[in-house]
Design a protein around this nucleic acid. Structure first.
Lengths: 216, 216
DNA sequence: GTCAATGATCGTGTATACAAGAAGTGCTAT
DNA sequence: ATAGCACTTCTTGTATACACGATCATTGAC
């Protein structure tokens, strides 16, 4: 809890939304949140305004804030953009790889290997996130990294669901291997192509997504 | 001025920043803004929180808000991402083109032709924006379109500066022609490639950008 | 003369009060 | 009994008040 209550609340509420504690469509009552966090309405409102600006909630004038429900189609579109950005990050990473980034990628990659081998989808979920973040960082573009991290956050719940589908764990890891090879070989185009297909949703995986979203 | 003062102020201040009325690094005093717009500090603060969330300003606790100065390198990174997103939009547009989008692209494209022929860089600046927006819309991905429009807004001042450089006007328009051809031919990969190089900044154009940014 | 410390002033952060609009409920009339 | 209208209540939107922290200036000491 930083010295800034408004920002703290923003993160707190954002996490609650992304972890599905507040379901899409749910109404966020300012007073309820204020008493729940033991503060007044002012910082709560500031947090809500920020979440509205980011696009996580929608504030309708005089009618309160509701959690936005992206819906399957929009989630698909978000993955499409994510795939493109990750592709760019990968291609930059291949071109600009330095020792530190190489080690970070190697470390997170081997952690993925362990959790994939153990079949621990929750552990893999976390390690996978660190792996992707290592690639964002290796691209050496602060702005791109920020965009990737932000979008990754918003897609987090869906990525999690996806990992539970079929034998996605081992498939995912073998794709990681190819991606690492391409980046370490300095093959930017190949890294871009592999990351795009790794992150993107194509063919039957879209119906998997819709199905897993319906489960909630 | 919608019924919501906070949102109105956000747009107002955002425009002031993007049109360089508030210079990067400048401090935004809440009370000054409040009296200037004839409201109290509350909606001003809400507007500032939102601009902070978007990334246009930075609010340092107890030290006020300052307009963020991206700096040449970060602007370059933003163009890099913009190029990637526009490339995706173009490739989707080529695949999903329908009659209405085709007409919108044709219309904005011919307006660009006129202002380019007239050598009117201000007119071309506006027509160019509409042309690019027509492509975003033709991609039929709401999320991508929003991301493109938002990033385009933030890069607007720099795009404008770029048009003043050398004979960029005619070069830009001839690139537009090739892009339109590729999209209308349904060649997504070519449209993507062309848009990426059209929007991106490579080689000597980076030094042009830095030089034009220093002019301000 | 310069540097540091302390106090004053200004601006931000949070709370609370007040106003205005929207939604829900109850009553009446058909 | 149902539909429409009015009233009440609840929630949001804006203003204002108060407190705490940061910055700046002034004074004193080395």
């Amino acid at each position: 809890m930083s010295e800034n209550v408004g920002r703290w609340l923003r993160d707190e509420i954002e996490n609650s939304i992304l972890s599905n504690e507040f379901s899409p469509g749910e109404r966020l009552d300012e007073m309820v949140l204020a008493t729940r966090f033991g503060v007044s309405r002012t910082p709560v409102r500031e947090a809500l305004m920020q979440l509205d600006a980011i696009g996580l909630i929608e504030i309708r004038p005089r009618r309160g804030a509701i959690v936005i429900d992206p819906g399957p189609h929009r989630v698909y579109e978000m993955f499409e953009v994510m795939a493109e950005l990750e592709g760019l990050a990968g291609s930059l990473a291949a071109r600009r790889l330095d020792k530190a980034s190489r080690e970070a990628i190697t470390a997170t990659h081997s952690r993925c290997e362990q959790s994939a081998a153990a079949g621990d989808s929750d552990a893999y979920y976390y390690d996978n996130e660190e792996f992707h973040k290592a690639i964002y960082a290796a691209g050496r573009s602060e702005f791109l990294e920020e965009q990737c991290v932000q979008l990754h956050r918003r897609l987090r719940p869906y990525r999690r669901l996806q990992l539970r589908v079929r034998n996605r764990l081992s498939t995912s890891f073998s794709e990681h291997c190819a991606i690492v090879d391409a980046i370490f070989a300095g093959d930017g185009d190949e890294a871009r192509r592999l990351l795009r297909t790794h992150v993107g949703i194509q063919g039957e995986r879209f119906s998997d997504l819709v199905a897993s979203m319906a489960l909630r």
